[in-house]
Computed example of a mutant assay.
Amino acid sequence: MAAVLAIGFGLNFALGRSSFGAPASVHLHALLFVGWTGLYVLQTGLAATGSLALHRRLGWLAVGWLPAMVLAGTYVTVMSVRREAVPFFSTPGYFLIMNPLGVLTFAGLSGAAMVLRRRTQWHRRLMLCGMAVLTGPGWGRFAPVPLLIPHAGLGVIALVLLFPLAGMLWDLRSRGRVHPAWWWGIGTILAMQVLIEIVPATPLGGAIYRAAAAGSPAAGHDRLAYPPFPPGFPIPHP
């Protein structure tokens, strides 16, 4: 999962699609999310090598880290909509709902895993499901999901689900049955995606967009219209 994020964002930078000239809020957002990824990898390694005392102590960092990620992710999303900096394969209304719901789902699954930290089998699986949600932006930056427009979001979520599905397969091969935590994790992710697909086109989605875009150039845009595509993109504009 860390590799997906590193490849996706690294490729984005290498191709000149992003730069260090982004607003300070974007850099803070990046530090929080990269830091969480590093912490997740470290925590997995500590648990795997039996360093459980340090694993438990570091785990308390999440109490403050998760809310900070939710706030930063939501703020950067709103500012991106206001600056008309939405990815070309997503409509502004969809993007505005997708990112906050994604980070809330990640935080909810990770928070549930913390509550169930004494039930190791639940804890480790729900943490993985939460981390899988965070790979969505990584997949979207290097997988050919733009070719799936107007269903790019569904393509991304299919890739995200590869990780918990791999966990289910591991359970079947090693334990002979699938742990129920996987069903709860995957069910939560699917529920998130259903809302992402439905809400943008509803009156609620319209109200959220108007509130977020008020006073910015984006206020006069159709929230369900795609931004301009890059020159030479191989499919017609939806």
Rank of each mutant, 00 (worst) to 15 (best):
residue 89 F to T: 03
residue 151 H to N: 07
residue 161 L to A: 11
residue 232 G to Q: 07
residue 116 L to T: 08
residue 54 L to E: 15
residue 215 G to Y: 14
residue 14 A to F: 14
residue 122 W to N: 10
residue 213 A to S: 12
residue 189 I to T: 07
residue 211 A to F: 12
residue 164 P to Y: 14
residue 197 E to I: 06
residue 51 S to Y: 05
residue 202 T to K: 03
residue 31 L to V: 09
residue 83 R to M: 12
residue 116 L to C: 14
residue 159 L to T: 02
residue 158 A to D: 08
residue 133 V to C: 04
residue 149 I to T: 12
residue 91 T to C: 09
residue 163 F to L: 04
residue 185 G to S: 03
residue 222 D to I: 03
residue 49 T to G: 09
residue 192 M to K: 02
residue 115 V to S: 11
residue 16 G to A: 09
residue 204 L to G: 05
residue 216 S to N: 04
residue 56 R to P: 11
residue 163 F to P: 00
residue 213 A to I: 02
residue 175 R to G: 11
residue 189 I to R: 03
residue 103 V to I: 15
residue 222 D to S: 03
residue 63 V to G: 01
residue 24 A to N: 07
residue 11 L to F: 03
residue 16 G to F: 10
residue 140 G to I: 00
residue 76 V to P: 11
residue 127 M to L: 04
residue 170 W to Y: 09
residue 35 G to E: 05
residue 109 L to T: 05
residue 178 V to G: 07
residue 146 P to Y: 11
residue 181 A to E: 06
residue 115 V to H: 09
residue 200 P to N: 04
residue 143 A to E: 13
residue 107 A to M: 05
residue 175 R to I: 05
residue 80 S to R: 14
residue 25 S to D: 14
residue 180 P to Q: 01
residue 216 S to P: 06
residue 1 M to G: 06
residue 81 V to C: 09
residue 184 W to H: 08
residue 198 I to D: 05
residue 137 P to C: 03
residue 49 T to C: 11
residue 126 L to N: 02
residue 25 S to E: 15
residue 198 I to A: 03
residue 52 L to C: 00
residue 6 A to K: 00
residue 217 P to C: 13
residue 231 P to A: 13
residue 72 A to D: 12
residue 148 L to I: 10
residue 172 L to A: 13
residue 125 R to E: 04
residue 172 L to T: 04
residue 118 R to F: 14
residue 237 H to D: 11
residue 66 L to G: 11
residue 154 L to N: 14
residue 7 I to W: 09
residue 110 S to I: 00
residue 205 G to K: 08
residue 204 L to D: 02
residue 61 L to G: 11
residue 64 G to C: 04
residue 175 R to C: 02
residue 94 Y to H: 15
residue 51 S to F: 08
residue 120 T to D: 14
residue 41 V to E: 13
residue 213 A to G: 06
residue 235 I to N: 14
residue 204 L to H: 03
residue 212 A to Q: 06
residue 165 L to F: 14
residue 218 A to S: 15
residue 156 V to M: 13
residue 133 V to D: 01
residue 184 W to L: 15
residue 12 N to D: 14
residue 64 G to I: 01
residue 173 R to C: 09
residue 153 G to H: 07
residue 92 P to E: 13
residue 230 P to H: 11
residue 184 W to C: 10
residue 199 V to L: 15
residue 149 I to A: 07
residue 13 F to E: 08
residue 59 G to T: 08
residue 215 G to V: 12
residue 215 G to T: 14
residue 104 L to H: 04
residue 170 W to V: 15
residue 190 L to S: 02
residue 63 V to R: 03
residue 49 T to Q: 13
residue 43 Q to K: 06
residue 182 W to M: 01
residue 146 P to W: 12
residue 1 M to S: 06
residue 102 G to H: 04
residue 165 L to S: 07
residue 175 R to W: 07
residue 69 M to V: 03
residue 155 G to Q: 07
residue 121 Q to E: 15
residue 53 A to K: 08
residue 86 V to Y: 13
